[in-house]
Amino acid sequence: MKSVVTTVIAAADAAGRFPSTSDLESVQGSLQRAAARMEAAEKLSGNLDNVAKEAYDACIAKYPYLNNAGEANSTDTFKAKCMRDVKHYMRLISYSLIVGGTGPLDEWGIAGQREVYRALNLPTGPYVAALSFARNRGCAPRDMSAQALTEYNALVDYVINSLS
């Protein structure tokens, strides 16, 4: 599992040297942001179902076609896909907040998924629409502190970028 700490140590070890000043600064930076990340992870875990549900409800409000009875792609199709997958990515985002790096997302959420989506011609539009909403919906200090929200939004952006 990659994190700022393991990356720095692995690089130093590969070169057979002690961690440099810039190595230590990057670790220190990550540790300083740890409290904000833990807050974001805690708030996200406690509110996961609402976040996922709001995200897909917002998409359906935006694309009312999905509500038409008898359409080949029924509302349930979209809801089920969004709900399951948004929850999956939110869980990985919470892991990444704890680790302080994108390792969990890279290793369990992104690697391989792009190929699968393309090979099976699965739509990534719903993820992007739902995750964009999830990013914009967050509000400080209502949901979490401004620093925590910055950490959370950065990872949501990371997922949007990597999956699209």
């Binding site: 694309y63 076609y65 999905l66 038409n68 359409e71 080949a72 792609n73 199709t77 979209f78 099976l120 011609n121 699965l122 739509p123 539009g125 719903p126």
Partner: peptide
């Protein structure tokens, strides 16, 4: 090509 999701957004 699999068309199941061809018009998921109705555009």
């Amino acid at each position: 090509m699999d068309k199941r999701f061809a018009n998921i957004f109705g555009l």
